[in-house]
Every structure is written in structure tokens, then in C-alpha cells.
Design a protein around this nucleic acid. Sequence first.
DNA 1: CTGAAAGCGCTTACAG
DNA 2: CTGAAAGCGCTTACAG
Lengths: 348, 348
Amino acid sequence: MNTIKEIAALAKVSPATVSNVLNNRNDQVSSETREKILEIIRETNFKPNRIAKSLRVNRTHTIGVIAEDITVFNTPSIINGINAFSEQNNYRIILNDLGLNEKMGHNFSEITRFKKTIDGSLAALLSFQVDGIIYVGLHPRDVTGVLPLVDKPVLYVGCYAENQISVNYDDKSAFYKATKTLIDLGHDRIALIAGPSDSLAAESRLAGYKAALENQDMLYRDEFVVTGDWGFESGHKLGKLLVDSDKLPTAILAMNDLMAIGAVNAIQASGLKVPDDISVIGFDNREFCQYTKPSLTTVQLPLYEMGYMAASTLIALVDNEDINRGIELPCDLIARDSAGLHHDYKYN
Amino acid sequence: MNTIKEIAALAKVSPATVSNVLNNRNDQVSSETREKILEIIRETNFKPNRIAKSLRVNRTHTIGVIAEDITVFNTPSIINGINAFSEQNNYRIILNDLGLNEKMGHNFSEITRFKKTIDGSLAALLSFQVDGIIYVGLHPRDVTGVLPLVDKPVLYVGCYAENQISVNYDDKSAFYKATKTLIDLGHDRIALIAGPSDSLAAESRLAGYKAALENQDMLYRDEFVVTGDWGFESGHKLGKLLVDSDKLPTAILAMNDLMAIGAVNAIQASGLKVPDDISVIGFDNREFCQYTKPSLTTVQLPLYEMGYMAASTLIALVDNEDINRGIELPCDLIARDSAGLHHDYKYN
DNA sequence: CTGAAAGCGCTTACAG
DNA sequence: CTGAAAGCGCTTACAG
């Protein structure tokens, strides 16, 4: 039994009536015929064809998700959040994975080389009549121009674009929190391993760091801020540099876990201990943070929440409801073993 | 310009002719009218409605993917592979994430509690008229019964079910390879930290271990095989146990990276060195393997390939082509720093 | 409360 | 080579 027509024949009613009970238009059909039809639907295990319905009502209840790279750590949790909202609201996700990380790494300018692929993915999604599109960035940054303008709602998560709606986490307050945590632990020489300054995320995090220092009347010192490239190796190199300098920091804050763990290794290689001699705090709460020695205190990203918020905002947009165009969600600090109280050491 | 009808009107031909050029039925239309129509399509940036086409031809070019948990490490790469095949063959993925890991952890019997949700996900996918379904397991094991029987092609990746088609990696040959690698490095006391024996995967890996020993005329010794629960802590505990025993192993093979890295930590805590005193090899090639000290030699899973193979097999099935019902793909060993030549040490 | 009819945007024999 | 017509499985005013 495959169609409404067949169910209607069995129940000796019209297809319209079957459609009415399927769509819970209870005022349109007597409870008698309603029960009869429901019974037949149960017996025959009939599942209405949503494709046909979609064509008719011009709405597919489908969200197109374009992920820059699903194998990058932040993306699965974001999609998990999108999925949760979708499930609760009877939407489906049509997923397209661009696989950009392997193709271009951190060389984001390369993205123009994939413009044609991306356009193709988008066009395919649109031809499937998705109700809206969520673009999931593999790293917080400006992606203006990667997507052509379309007449369906589009929203960016984990990245942003000029004049576009986006959902992200709040870099500044997260870094404020991390810095404040170190200050509260008694640290007075807090070095920062920053990300490249062309990253707006790095800039916001730096601002959070400065704000926390300032708020505690501590001096911001240029020599305590070094810049890496987000990689493990660069964290290692910069960690060594900080440890070898004449002004040894009491704590190091890194803008991601990879650089943090690189720094931890450098500190340990120099014979110092984490956190006894130097505390370290990372950022991202990558899975490996719990398996390092010591386990890494870090900042947890609200990825699931971002995905959930993205989906709910997109659907609100589809339904022409009012929305907030620039959403920033707060991060939590995860206290583990790499950051502790500052107790004075051999240096002054 | 949104429909074939409108394009037809502009080109002063019938919708049938537009449809013919859209579907490359070149013998059906003169190159003149063909060019004219193509030109108009370009100008108007017309994208045919695939929902309408799907309804008409009773084929959506859509693969339903049910992932037990997209946040578990193996799943994104598998989906990446499914996506790659789909992209090349003009299919789309409708993704449903069950989020089971958080809900049930390793307590797989709990899965029956989610039967209703899973049935719902499947029903929704079917009502969207997917051409076939791929079920992505979060851990290799028997999932017979989680999915009800349906009349669309279904395939299992990263898990298996009775009488069902599945794509997995070859546990036995992978473990044979890992064991053989240690033997070739001169190790003669190779301990094994196994997974629970109710896991078929653990059984196959054990068989590979035994086969490699046997092949080199080495004795299999029960006291060298200990059983963990896949977790970091259990690896730590068992690593300590092995290190504290009177018959110190020269190498430890673990059935996953988490237990391997737990063992490494235990070895180091006891004052021994990896790999100088004891070599360690893991399994899975989790991302953190490159960031541990020493970096972990391990077995790489062919996840992308499994996903690609799953998608291509599923579509072959949809097209009624012959397929292989039980596919096992080989794994590669990734040599890093945790396994080295065995040079005799203080023990005999 | 119920049904006949039109139509969503395509495709596909078929006739010419 | 081209077009008229029917139909995929639904929904929705509308008439009764």
C-alpha cells in the first residue's frame, strides 16, 4: 500500500479526506472516519511520500548543510546540534562536505580555487529545494564571497561573512575568562601564544586577554606575547623561546590546544614542570586534552549549542520571524591539571 | 525564471523539448534549438526542480545515512568517503545522527531503549524516498535487529548485521601486520592489551596476533595477554600490571590507541622508557597519536575508503548490479616513535 | 463533514 | 526533430 489513493479506496473515502487526517485537520473529518482511516494506515504501514508533499506545498522541511570539512574537530559537534534541532522539529539535513582542510589546510586564500565546486554544491542543494542553508566553517574567520548570493536564507556557523547572519562563540569573553582564571591563581607574568594577527578570532582573544589584565590593574607587556601559526610545532618553538627568555613567565595562555601542548612539551623538555613551575591553559578542548601529561586545562567551545542555535535561527528566518543576526555564545573553562596556583620559584 | 514551462515559453518550444536538452537526449533535439534553449537557461540561471523530477521518475538520487554518533572519531571520515562518492555520482546525503555515544556509551545493550527513535529516523528517511540507506556504526560490532527490515537497499559500515551487507576493515590482517612489525624489530616478548572478548573485533585481532606469532614459530603465552575495556584508564592499569610482572615484555600491542597511551603513561611512570625499554603500538590512529610523547606508532583505519566503498556498493545495489556482500578493507601501519628495535636490557 | 478537481514541476511514451 | 497529453503522489480551495 503505497499511496493516499489506495488508502482512500480501502477506507471508501476520498484522497482528500485521507490527506486531512494525515495532517491532523481534525475539524475537517469526523472521528469515526478518522479512526477508520488511521486503522487502515496502521495495518498497511502506510508512509506518505514526502517528496510529493514537498512539491505540492513548496516546502521540503530540509536544511542544506555545507561543511567546509567534516573531519575537522569542531564540525561534528556543530552538526550534532543542527541535527538535534532538526529532529525535534521534523526537519532533515542534506549534508555536503567540501573536504577543504585536506585540500587547502590553513592556506585560506586557496579557497577561491574551489569556488566552482562550492557553487556546484550550493546549486545542487538549491535544486533539491532546501528551505535554507547553513555553512559550517572549519575555523572562525571571514568567508565573505565563498557563497554566491541566493534567494534562500543562509546562515554561517563557526565563521562569518559581511552582512550575513552568523553564529559563533564569544572569543573575547572566553579569553577574558581564561586570563582571569590565571590571575586568580596568583599568576603575575602571563605569557600569550597568539594566533596569526590576520585572524579576527586571534584579535578578539587578544582583546579579552588585555581586558582581563587591565581589569586587574596589571600591565600588558609586549615581550610576553608571541605569535604562532596554530600548529603544534609552532607552540613548541614559542614555548621554548618563552622558557629560555630572561623573564620567565609563571603561566602561558595559548590560543589553541595544539600550541598549548607544544608549549607543554617544550617546558618539560627544558626540565621545568607543568603546572608546578609554569601553568598552561589551552583553547578548544580537543579530545586529546584529557590524555596528555598533565591533562590540559582549556576552554570548551559551545559547538553543539552553536549548531542548535544555527538551525533554530535558520528556521525562524524561513518562517519570517525576527532573529538576532550576530549571535555569540559563551565558552566554559575546563579545569584540569595543567594550571595551578602560582607559588614563587627560584626566579624573582 | 523558475520552471521548465517558463524556459519553454521564452524559447518558443514545448516543455518536453526543454526537458530533453536538460537530460542530454541529444538525438531528440536539433543542435540549433538545443543551443537556443541552453542560452536561455544560462541567461535566466535556471535550475530545474529536482523534487519534481524525483517524484516523476521515482528516484531521488539521495542516500540516507544513519550515523550512530557523528562525534565519534571514525564517523566523520566514513561520511567524508560517502560524500566523495556521492559528489562524483551526483547523489546527495540525507544525514541522521543518532547521538548514541553520549546516550549509551559502551553499554551497547542499551540500544534497544532507542529502538523507537531509530525506527522514526528510518521511517523519515524512507518517506523522503531515499534510494538506499547506509548505517554507520560507532564501533565494530553486531547490530542485528537495530533496523527493521525495509524494502530499500541497506548497508552497514563500521559494524555488521546477520545476513546483511557490510563494509569493514580487516581486523585480523591488521593485527597480523602490527605483530609482525614488532617481531621484525626483534621483539620476542610481545604483550597484548586486548579488548573485551565479547567483541568480535577483539577476537579477530587476537587471531591476527596469534597467527603472526605462529608464523614466526613463536610461542603464544597466556600471561602476555590482558584484557581491558577500551578506555585510557584500563590501558594505564594493565600497562602497570605488565611492567610490574616478573616477565617484563619487550613490546606491548594494544587493541586501541586509548589503551596504548594509557600503557605508555604507566611505563613512563615506572621509570622505563618508550620505546627504548618497551615498544608500544596502538590501533586506530586517533588524532592525538601525533601529539603524545613519544608519538604513537599505530594502525591506520581505512575509514574514507570504507565510506567510499559503502556508497558505491549501495548504489550498485540500487542499480541491481552484482556486489560483494562482506567487504573487508586492509589497514596500514603508521610508524612513529613509540616502537623501535629491541636491544636487550637489564632483564634476561 | 466529504469529495471532485486542479495543480505543484517535472518526464515520457506516442503521434505527427 | 517537436509537441500534446497524461501522470508521479500529494494538498487545497471550493461546492455541496
